[in-house]
Nucleic acid binder design. Structure first.
Length: 467
RNA sequence: GGCGACGUACCCAAGUUGGUAAGGGACGGCUCUGCAAAAGCCUUAUUCCUCGGUUCGAGUCCGAGCGUUGCCUCCA
């Protein structure tokens, strides 16, 4: 029952343990840049990190989980010609950059809640840690890892020979095919630690520093905040797979040069959600958000279950059909578990303990959630005492986070102009016809309701309708 | 150009050190119902992109090919 995770640093699965004397797992997860809504692809990564956290807790570890909110507008390129994402967001919405950051931070946290992602121990904002970032750059400068150009202070990657190792970079060929603008950089892999504000204009966000007025570079915030809140070495550092080559490589370089210690023991990366050929993903402003799914009648947890059906290191293809699958799947899961609510008791039979054990092994094997789901389903089919089933459902749901311990919340598609009065009238007309065995009339009324998108079902307690 | 990932039934997807294809959804069938819907039950791949090789035995290892796709620029 050894807990093991795939470590990007070694490209292999390794047993996870905590070093002597460390009371809680120190996890840092790269969070969002709050200049726009998070789309469900972004959210997939946070769901993966949530499984990770819950799995660690299931295994009895205390967890110190830090997630950053990037509210500094970094430029979109290394030169001076890129746009600032935050300022772009401000322009788009007609708000100040601070309002933009605040607004999208709030909606982001709402999404977390809707997806039943456990809040991190600490949310940290980049703008609240400018001094720590400046301090880190100063340390790097003192140790001789930096150089100055006309537009900023840069990290000299040539001084860190291990630079290419983490991402298996082929630095020679990187330059050949890159689209990186060199500017005054000495090497394509050098990166800005501190950027100067343009002399002729005032930026919406800028700070004083030993090098003049400006703003922090792209990567420094994560190193500064992670070390500020968790210490110089982390146990696990997570992010999306796109971070491996640039962001995390640079974080390692600057952090390890500053401290002389390993920055993180484990690196874990979530793979992307794909949108297939669906156009809506790419076209600006049309990407899929949690609230859009809700408008279409999905419970956010339907999406959580969808994310649960594939392994975090594999691509997941998003299609509406697949989401509907997940919704049906969650519904039928609830059918089986809702009747168990309140019946939980001890897990003690040999069979029940075996299920618990299998479940624990699945999640502990690099978060094999699809397998864990399969175990839940098999368990529900098995001939077990209801009290044990109920207990196992609650136990598993500590990790799955599907709220199987409470009744499912339905999300009806948004539909204006539903005339409840008329529907009720039609239904009683139909029931009158049925009483008289006038089947033709009752079927006609049902068709009429159907044309209004109303589905009815005749149950023992009368007729129910739904959209 | 460099570095990767993936290709398992209609759809999503698991498959640990090679041993004879989890699970979910849809479909279909049955039960129930005036008929539907709902509910319950059952069923669904001699086969894992192709071709070779290793092996008593390969989805699982090796080689080649085909296809899809990501990163290398802010990006989860």
């Amino acid at each position: 029952m050894a807990l093991q995770f795939y470590n990007t640093a070694t490209r292999s699965k390794e047993p996870f343990t905590l070093p002597e004397g460390v009371p809680a797992v120190r996890i840092y997860c790269c969070g969002p840049t709050v200049y726009h809504f998070a789309h469900i692809g972004n959210l997939r990564t946070y769901i993966f990190e949530d499984f990770l956290r819950r799995t660690l807790e299931y295994y009895g570890f205390a967890v110190n989980h830090v997630v950053n909110i990037t509210d500094v507008g970094h430029l979109t390129s290394d030169g001076d010609d890129g746009d600032d994402k935050m300022e772009k967001g401000a322009l788009r919405t007609g708000k100040t950059v601070w309002e933009v950051a605040d607004y999208y931070t709030q909606t982001f946290m709402k999404d977390w809640k809707a997806l039943n992602i456990i809040e991190p121990s600490i949310w940290c904002k980049a703008t609240d840690h400018i001094q720590q970032q400046i301090q880190l750059v100063k340390t790097l400068e003192e140790k001789g890892y930096t150089y100055r150009t006309s537009d900023g202070i840069y990290f000299d990657s040539a001084k860190f020979p291990r630079y290419p190792d983490f991402a298996h970079l082929d630095v020679e060929n990187l330059q050949q095919g890159s689209r990186i603008e060199m500017g005054e950089k000495r090497s394509a892999t050098d990166f800005a630690l501190w950027k100067f504000s343009p002399k002729d204009q005032k930026r919406a966000m800028e700070w004083d520093s030993p090098w003049g007025i400006g703003f922090p570079g792209w990567h420094i915030e994560c190193s500064a905040m992670a070390m500020h809140h968790l210490g110089e070495t982390l146990d696990i550092h997570c992010g999306g797979s796109d971070h491996i080559r640039v962001h995390h490589t640079n974080e390692i370089a600057q952090s390890e040069c500053a401290t002389g210690k390993p920055f993180a023991r484990f690196w874990m990366h979530g793979e992307f959600l794909r949108m297939g050929s669906d156009k809506m993903s790419k076209s600006a402003g049309e990407f899929l958000t949690v609230s859009l799914l809700q408008e279409k009648g999905f419970n956010p947890l339907d999406y959580r279950l969808f994310a649960l059906t594939s392994h975090y290191r594999n691509y997941l293809n998003f299609t509406w059909e697949a989401l509907e699958n997940a919704r049906e799947s969650l519904k039928s899961l609830h059918k089986k578990t809702d009747v168990l609510i309140g019946k939980a008791d001890l897990i003690q039979s040999e069979l029940a303990l075996r299920f618990k054990n299998e479940f624990q092994e699945a999640i502990g094997d690099d978060l094999n959630m699809p397998k864990a789901l399969g175990i839940l389903n098999s368990m529900l089919k098995e001939n077990l005492e209801e009290s044990e089933k109920a207990a196992l459902v609650l136990d598993f749901d500590r990790v799955l986070g599907l709220n199987l311990g409470s009744i499912r919340e339905e999300y009806a598609p948004k539909q204006e102009n539903v005339d409840v009065f008329k529907i009720d009238a039609l239904i009683s007309l139909r029931n009158e016809a049925r009483k008289n065995k006038n089947w033709a009339e009752s079927d006609r009324i049902r068709d009429e309701l159907k044309s209004m998108n109303i589905t009815i079902k005749d149950g023992p307690n009368g007729t129910e309708w739904s959209l």
